[in-house]
Amino acid sequence: MGGLQVIAFENVGFNYGGGELLSDVTLRLAPGSFHFLTGPSGAGKSTFLKLAYAELRPTAGRVSIFDRDARMMTRDDVAMSRRRIGVVHQDCQFLDHLPLATNVTLPLTVANRTGDAQDLTALLDWVGLGKLADALPPSLSGGERQRAALARAIIMSPDVILADEPTGNLDWEMSLRLLTLLVELSRMGKTILVATHDMNLIRQAKSQLAARVLRIQNRRIQLAGADL
């Protein structure tokens, strides 16, 4: 990792054309850090994550992704940066006509690195989907889809993992399983940011590692709870 932060927000503001959703947000995600992002529905958690992987551009301030100003990035630059950022959504999308294994290796395929897929079986076993490699995505349960999305997000060995409500559709047992996978990734040195409103999950994570909790309130981000 080159800089002291992988993703940095400096006085960032954002609006969708109406009033500001985020305002004067400053934050640096250091390499290997683990952050939770909380806040009420509609507070701007998903927007914050989209700014972090350049799906959205800030309307004020500056977002740096791997030390590059997001506003100055070309579409190809954005594509290249996403090969270093794994994203997991609550309603993760797949190519429904392709089997799970092909979906998981999709980041390698588009990067023309299919030769790096030899660890696929181990990866699928790690997320508990080893026996479903040939299954089509529509046949997977919510938990299986979330774990498949996580496997797809990390197959390129990204520097950063951004997860938007990854346990939103999961029961507690499955949520814990997914959390365990994220904790293991953090211990491997990955930078992780999880947007969630599940306080039980946050408490469970903080019992296992030093995670910081951020809260979006009044359009700004602040340390929350015990981190204050």
């Binding site: 579409r75 594509a79 999308q93 797949f94 999709l106 980041p107 588009v110 990067a111």
Partner: peptide, 16 residues
Amino acid sequence: LPVIRVLRLVGAKDAY
């Protein structure tokens, strides 16, 4: 469009 969004999300360039 959903397919294209997935491809962009996982790092596909426009040319691909």
